[in-house]
C-alpha cells in the first residue's frame, strides 16, 4: 500500500459558436470629437475579458492606441443586438462585428484625414498610436484627434461604423444528422500527472501540461488565464464536483461551498502550457473560442492518469476516493486465488 504516481493523456476539440438558431451579434462604433472611439455593444463580460479583447480588435482595425477605445456594454436601449455570452462565441462573433464596424469607421476617418492632408485616402496609414501618416512621406501626418475634430466641425461627417456577424441558422437533417453546427474548432492536448493513495483512494493532481490550438491568441495573457482557470475547473469536475453526490439518488445535495467540493488553493497542481495558432478562416484575425474548452481535456487526462497509477478505471464522474477504493478493492478481490 502506497502512494502511486501515474500519467494520462487526453486530446480534444471544441466548437466555436452555436449555430442551431442563427447566431448574430452586432457592434456600433463612433468617434468622439477628440478622436476617441466608443464601441457600443450589448454583449456581456462574465469575467472572460470581453472588454479588453474588443478593445484590442477595435484598436487594431482602426489603427489607434487601445487607450483611445471605450467599450460601452451592455444596455439594450443603446447597444445593438448580441445573442449573448455562451458557446465560446463572443470573441468570434462580436470580434467579427467589430471588424466590420471599425472598417467602416476607419474609411471615414481616412477620407477626412485625406481631405485635411490633401492626399488620397489610399495613401494614408495609421501608426497605431494616434497619428495618420502619408505613406512614404515622413512628417506629413495628422493626429486622429484633429481628424475627428475636422470631421465633426468642418466636414459634417460621422466617423462611425456598423457591424454585424451572422452565422446563418443550420437546420439539421433529422434523417441523417447532417448539419453545420459551428464555425471552427479549437484543439487541446493535456497530460495529467497524479498521485493516488491506494489505502484511501485519494487522488492528488501534481501537474497539468497542455498544448492549446486556438486560432489566434488575441491576448496571450488572457489566454493563459483561461487555460489555468479552466485546467483548475477541469480538475475540479474530474475529482470533486457534483450537485448530486449519489446520483441518481437525490439525497445529500450540497448547498454551500463546503459541501459543493472544489479544489482550494492547497489542492492545485503545477500548470504548464504552450499555445499553437492555426488561424481560422472565419474568426477575427483567425481567433477561435477558447472559453469553454479549457476545462475539458484535464478530466479524461486525470482519469487516465489514475488508471496508469493504480489500475483503477473509473468511468463515473466525479472520481471520488470512494470510487477509486472500490475499484482497487474489486481488483484485489479478483486477484485472490
Amino acid at each position: 500500500m502506497a502512494k502511486l504516481r501515474g500519467r494520462g493523456i487526453a486530446a480534444v476539440n471544441y466548437p466555436t459558436g452555436m449555430n442551431l438558431g442563427g447566431d448574430p451579434s452586432q457592434a456600433l462604433i463612433h468617434a468622439t470629437t477628440t478622436g476617441n472611439f466608443v464601441v457600443t455593444l450589448s454583449s456581456v463580460d462574465l469575467g472572460q475579458g470581453l472588454r479588453t479583447i474588443m478593445t484590442q480588435i477595435t484598436a487594431e482595425v482602426l489603427g489607434i492606441a487601445p487607450e483611445a477605445v471605450m467599450i460601452d456594454t451592455a444596455d439594450t436601449d443603446t447597444g445593438p443586438h448580441c445573442m449573448g455570452t455562451f458557446a465560446s462565441r463572443t470573441t468570434h462573433r462580436v470580434g467579427n462585428a467589430i471588424i466590420m464596424a471599425a472598417t467602416e469607421a476607419r474609411k471615414v476617418l481616412l477620407d477626412v484625414a485625406g481631405e485635411e492632408l490633401e492626399v488620397a485616402p489610399e495613401d494614408l496609414e495609421t501608426d497605431g498610436t494616434g497619428r495618420i501618416v502619408v505613406k512614404g512621406v515622413p512628417g506629413k501626418s495628422i493626429s486622429v484627434q484633429d481628424a475627428a475634430l475636422a470631421a465633426h466641425f468642418k466636414h459634417g461627417r460621422t466617423i462611425s461604423g456598423r457591424g454585424i456577424y451572422l452565422k446563418p441558422r443550420s437546420y439539421p437533417d433529422f434523417e441523417t444528422g447532417a448539419m453545420d453546427p459551428d464555425s471552427c474548432q479549437a484543439h487541446a492536448c493535456t497530460i495529467a500527472e497524479v498521485e493516488v493513495d491506494t489505502e484511501t483512494g485519494d487522488v492528488r493532481v501534481l501537474k497539468l501540461i497542455s498544448a492549446y490550438e486556438i486560432g489566434r491568441a488575441i491576448n496571450p495573457m488572457m489566454v493563459e488565464q483561461q487555460i489555468v482557470g479552466g485546467s483548475w475547473m477541469g480538475m475540479s469536475h474530474a475529482l470533486y464536483e457534483t450537485t448530486e453526490p449519489y446520483y441518481p439518488n437525490r439525497a445529500h445535495g450540497p448547498v454551500d461551498f463546503l459541501g459543493y467540493l472544489m479544489p482550494g488553493p492547497a489542492d492545485i497542481p503545477e500548470y504548464d502550457a504552450v499555445i499553437l495558432e492555426r488561424p481560422s478562416t472565419n474568426g477575427p484575425f483567425g481567433a477561435k473560442g477558447i472559453g469553454e474548452m479549457t476545462a475539458n481535456s484535464p478530466i479524461p487526462a486525470i482519469a487516465n492518469a489514475i488508471f496508469d497509477a493504480c489500475g483503477a478505471r473509473i468511468d463515473d464522474l466525479p472520481i471520488t476516493p470512494e470510487k477509486v477504493l472500490r475499484a482497487l478493492d474489486a481488483a484485489a478481490l479478483a486477484a485472490q486465488p
Binding site: G47, Q225, V228, G229, G230, S231, W232, M233, F257, M262, G264, P265, I268, Y271
Partner: peptide, 11 residues
C-alpha cells in the same frame, strides 16, 4: 472561493 482563476495567479 474563486471560480475563475484556478487560484495560482492569486497566490
Amino acid at each position: 472561493v474563486c471560480r475563475c482563476t484556478g487560484y495560482e495567479p492569486i497566490i
